[in-house]
């Protein structure tokens, strides 16, 4: 009897825990610019069909759902690897889309589009073959941007014992800015130089999405209202003044180093903001199965 009572209490407790706090109306503005939201690419169910019969027409419908917090521009979706001896593509293999809106107040769930490819299964199946399997790929590429903003503490007085200002956090980690490419770490280094004090921000920019980032460009940076002129990627491309980097397949990250000479002598908090643009590519594999 005691055991049963105990078990009932446990179950009730679990129900209570499971319910959790009620999700009442959200306070303030929802911040979409967090996490590593990206473009979700998927084929709609049955498009293409699981079984495609010879001589039949079918569609391949790709859903592009922008879950990033920024618009995607200059998008292109390509189909690759379909054997045209067996499948005749009525639609062009490449489709462009100009803008795909990201998550925002206006569109909290992001914009979604469906791209259709029409095709016909030709009567080319070999006489004794029961089916023909044709693996293929859909590749989506686009350009987008992301912004990084954070409050940092600038303390030029390295040896000040009694510090009434802010405390410098040498290293901070971030969980994304609402895009697949993101600033993931920020290291602040302040050191004396011959002319005074210099601060160096070592910003790790990384691809955290499932696709591949290509060209990443630093469009601008500011510390407070002061423009960050001395910024360069560690592995920047030639003739880009250090502002562009091309991510390798294996190493989808790079370090951006920004230096600034500090004029003030007192510590203060200010905003570090960086704007990036990048080119991204997502690839998905699927398969066409032709049957007699």
């Amino acid at each position: 009897m005691k055991l049963i009572k105990f078990l009932v209490i446990i179950v009730l407790f679990m129900f209570l825990l499971g319910c959790g706090s009620s999700s009442g109306p959200k306070q303030g503005i929802q911040n979409f610019k967090q996490g590593y939201g990206s473009l979700d690419v998927r084929f709609l169910d049955n498009s293409p069909p699981e079984k495609i019969y010879q001589g039949s027409k079918f569609k391949m419908i790709v859903e592009l759902d922008n879950q990033a917090a920024y618009d995607l521009e200059g998008g292109q979706i390509k189909i690759m690897g379909v054997d045209e001896k067996f499948f005749l593509m009525s639609s062009p293999l490449t489709n462009d889309f100009s803008v795909l809106m990201g998550k925002s107040l206006v569109s909290p769930s992001g914009e979604k589009i469906f791209v259709e490819f029409d095709a016909t299964a030709l009567n080319e199946l070999f006489e004794n073959a029961e089916r023909f399997q044709n693996p293929f790929f859909v590749k989506v590429s686009f350009d987008s941007v992301f912004e990084f903003t954070d409050t940092v503490c600038i303390n030029p007085n390295l040896y000040e014992v009694y510090d009434s200002g802010c405390k410098v956090q040498p290293k901070k980690s971030y969980s994304g800015q609402g895009a697949p490419v993101a600033v993931t770490e920020l290291e602040s280094v302040i050191y004396p130089s011959s002319a005074g004090t210099e601060t160096e921000f070592r910003i790790l920019v990384k691809n955290r999405g499932s696709g591949k980032a290509n060209l990443v460009v630093l469009e601008g940076g500011k510390l407070g209202n002061q423009e960050l002129k001395d910024c360069h990627f560690q592995n920047s491309v030639k003739d880009s003044q250090g502002k562009k980097v091309l991510f390798y397949k294996k190493k989808q990250e790079d370090l951006l180093i920004c230096k600034l000479f500090l004029r003030d002598q007192v510590s203060y908090e200010t905003t570090l903001s960086l704007d990036f643009s990048y080119n991204y590519e997502i690839s998905k594999k699927h398969q066409l199965n032709m049957y007699k």
Binding site: G81, P135, L246, Y248, K249, K285
Partner: peptide, 22 residues
């Protein structure tokens, strides 16, 4: 702006895709 190494890496990726097509 692609370097030769990046071109090679991209090709390797495509070769893997093609290989998966048997």
């Amino acid at each position: 702006e692609m370097t030769n190494q990046q071109v090679r890496e991209t090709k390797d990726e495509i070769l893997k895709e093609i290989k998966s097509a048997n």
